[in-house]
Amino acid sequence: MTTTNAAPAAAPGEQARVLTLRVNGIEQRGIAGPGTTLLEFLREELGLTGSKRGCDLGECGCCSVLVDGRPMLSCLLLAADVAGSEITTIEGIARGETLHPLQQAMVDEGAIQCGFCTPAMVINGVDLFNRTASPSRDEIKACVSATVCRCTGYNRIEQAFVTTAERLSGKGGAR
């Protein structure tokens, strides 16, 4: 083994600088290099670890956040490229302790197993329910297919979406 104590060099080719992003309704500052992704910025600089790094290549969906209201993959966005946009992470979805109806339905329907994809499922679902209160079965499938879940087989998650739609339309009522 080798241990050393020399001072660290600046990372090669980095012009790291202070970046301000509007996240969950407030301006938040951190350090970002040109290649820093939004996901890294959220997790490492802002400590918002609810957005997950599942693949870092835009394939699993677990890093989904809302950018100006639409879900996007924060691992494929440069932090500097979304300056000026409104970013909403899973930490910004609930109103205080009141869960979003989809969050509540995910809990009630047992749609959560390991929970690693859960924030992304919620983020994508919030966008869906912002656009329509009564999504079709195919719209739900498309929304759920946006994120890889290896635990649930998606059935309970889809059920949570159906339950949310029922509750929003007043048909189901709370359990």
Binding site: L48, S51, T89, I90, E91, I93, A94, V107, T118
Partner: peptide
Amino acid sequence: PQIDSRDKVLGRARF
């Protein structure tokens, strides 16, 4: 529901 599902659905569960 799992007892920690609220933490998970809020993004607070620490992996």
